[in-house]
């Protein structure tokens, strides 16, 4: 028995894709007739967006809860953080939904069937529970719902936050494991991929927190939170850069498909995305701005804060480009 009749799925599909008039075409593969090393083209921007939003959102949620318990973040900042983290996780679900097969996507509940064997299934399960838990935890901040028994400071509330913490961490780790768990694409099949994704997830999540503090509590709160956070952000940027260099070096001495992938990134089709997006936007620009802030040379006031917001935006863009570049540079080995 199917979960949804085809006719209903088709009507829903028209509503989903109708606003942009999209009609996808043919197969999603490049079934050529030459014996070579095919580049994967089926997991692109949408999956990268899912991995980025899910990973960064998870990192953000995790750090927001930890830093709140440590007293670094105020109540208002934490409340804003909760809702933004929820929105990011929800957006990541929308991105992966859009990636699914046209018409077939309306049977998406089937994706929950195989958590014991499929990483995709585990991922959708983790992110769905995370969104639901996050929603439940955030409810007491809604006017009129303050009396709920898991409000801020209650034992039940702390228990729920602990659960959220666990699921957020699980999703951050999953976002790297999902592509490194298969050996079909050598460039992805590295233990450093999850490390890299976790590092960039925490970097994206942590860097966003001072900006949230500005939105929630004003410029002074941003400066206070920033004093504690910017040095850690700087350390994370350095750590991520080292892991990225190690990863690329390791892959450049690995099998031929992996070497082709590295070539694509450093000299080929993905060079601009990598050098401009990952290195310059994601690492260099934030490193310079945050270093200046840490040593006190950036100054104070709205101008300096806006520069930091720009650096945070660059970190986020770098996080997206990292996932996108790694996905696009996925090269299969020869089939024989």
């Amino acid at each position: 028995m199917t979960l949804m009749p085809d006719r209903l799925a088709l009507a829903l599909e028209r509503a989903w894709t109708g606003w942009r008039g999209e009609r996808r075409n043919h197969g999603n593969v490049d079934h050529g007739f030459q014996l070579d090393l095919p580049v994967q083209k089926h997991w692109g921007g949408r999956v990268a967006f899912y991995l980025f939003l899910g990973g960064t959102g998870g990192g953000f949620v995790f750090l927001e809860i930890v830093l709140r318990w440590l007293g670094v973040l105020g109540t208002a900042t934490a409340a804003w953080g909760m809702w933004i983290g929820l929105a990011l996780a929800f957006l990541s679900l929308l991105a992966i939904f859009d990636h699914l097969g046209p018409v077939a996507r309306w049977r998406f509940l089937y994706a929950f069937r195989r958590p014991r064997q499929s990483w995709i299934s585990r991922g959708v399960m983790i992110v769905s529970v995370l969104v639901l838990l996050r929603l439940v935890v955030a409810l007491p901040t809604v006017p009129g719902a303050e009396g709920l028994p898991w409000a801020d400071g209650s034992i039940l509330g702390d228990g729920l936050r602990l659960l959220v913490l666990g699921f957020a961490l699980a999703f951050v780790i999953y976002s790297g494991l999902v592509i490194s768990s298969w050996n079909a694409i050598a460039f992805w099949n590295s233990a450093l991929v999850p490390v890299l994704f976790v590092g960039f997830s925490f970097l994206g999540g942590l860097a966003a927190l001072p900006v949230i503090a500005w939105l929630a509590d004003g410029l002074t709160a941003m400066e206070q939170v920033g004093d504690a956070i910017w040095p850690i952000v700087l350390a994370l940027i350095a750590g991520d850069a080292i892991v990225l260099a190690l990863y690329l070096h390791g892959m450049s001495t690995a099998t031929r498909p992996a070497r082709v992938s590295v070539g694509m990134i450093l000299r080929g089709a993905e060079r601009r995305r990598f050098v401009g997006g990952v290195v310059t936007l994601g690492l260099l620009i934030p490193a310079v701005v945050v270093t200046l802030e840490t040593i006190g040379s950036l100054g104070t006031g709205t101008g300096a804060a806006l520069l930091l917001v720009g650096a945070v935006a660059a970190v986020q863009a770098g996080g997206y480009f990292l996932r996108d570049t790694i996905l696009r540079a996925g090269v299969y080995g020869p089939p024989v």
Binding site: R105, Y332, P335
Partner: peptide, 21 residues
């Protein structure tokens, strides 16, 4: 549901997703 996980996992690049057209 068309996740294309099979395409990613298959080292022989065999499965395809039919998207109409």
């Amino acid at each position: 549901v068309g996740t294309m996980a099979c395409l990613t996992a298959c080292p022989y690049y065999v499965p395809a997703r039919y998207d109409g057209g």
